[in-house]
Each structure stands twice: as structure tokens, then as C-alpha cells.
Lab assay of single mutants.
Amino acid sequence: MIFPGATVRVTNVDDTYYRFEGLVQRVSDGKAAVLFENGNWDKLVTFRLSELEAVK
């Protein structure tokens, strides 16, 4: 189960963010908004829950 605050990895091989890890900001309607941070940039991207896996 994916909840806000969880760290997730993108599993969709066709996505630009494949294998990126980010922090879930919100979850609704089968989608999750994931925040990616890297140095001087932040990006908030929405994914279907089926495209994400929780990082242990």
C-alpha cells in the first residue's frame, strides 16, 4: 500500500522517470503525486498507482 510520505520507485519502463525514486505527496483516484528532488530542482509528477512500487 502506498501512502503520503512513502518513498516510491517508478516501475513503468516506458516512462521518462523509470527507476527514479521520490516522495509521495498525495494519493487519490488511483493516482499518486510524487515529488522528485535533485540538487537545485524539484518536480511533482502524477503516476497511476500501478506504475509505482514502495521502496523498502
Rank of each mutant, 00 (worst) to 15 (best):
Y18C: 03
L23P: 02
G5F: 04
A33M: 14
P4G: 04
N40K: 12
V34P: 01
M1C: 12
L49I: 10
E21K: 07
N12M: 06
G39W: 08
E51W: 06
E21D: 04
R19Y: 08
A6W: 09
N38T: 12
L23R: 11
L52P: 00
V10T: 02
N38V: 13
V8Y: 02
A54P: 13
K43A: 14
S28A: 12
V55R: 04
D15R: 08
A33R: 06
R19T: 10
D42N: 15
K43I: 14
G39R: 08
E51H: 08
E53K: 07
T46Q: 08
T46W: 15
A54F: 14
N12S: 08
V45M: 08
Y17M: 08
F47A: 00
L35D: 03
G5A: 03
N40G: 13
F20H: 10
F20T: 06
V45P: 05
Y17G: 02
Y17P: 01
N12A: 09
L49K: 03
G39I: 09
V8K: 00
D42E: 15
G39Q: 09
L52A: 00
P4L: 07
A54R: 09
L23G: 02
K56P: 14
V45G: 04
F3V: 13
S28E: 14
T46A: 05
D42V: 15
A33F: 13
V8C: 04
G22K: 01
S50T: 11
F47K: 02
K43W: 10
S50Q: 09
L44V: 14
P4R: 07
D29E: 10
D42G: 14
A33V: 15
T16N: 10
G30W: 04
L52Y: 02
M1I: 09
V34H: 01
E21G: 02
R48E: 13
V10E: 00
D29V: 05
R9F: 06
F36E: 00
V34W: 02
V34N: 01
A32Y: 04
K56A: 13
M1Y: 11
D29C: 09
D14N: 14
I2G: 02
T7Q: 08
F20D: 04
A54S: 08
E21R: 07
L52D: 00
V24S: 00
R9N: 03
G5K: 02
W41T: 11
E37L: 13
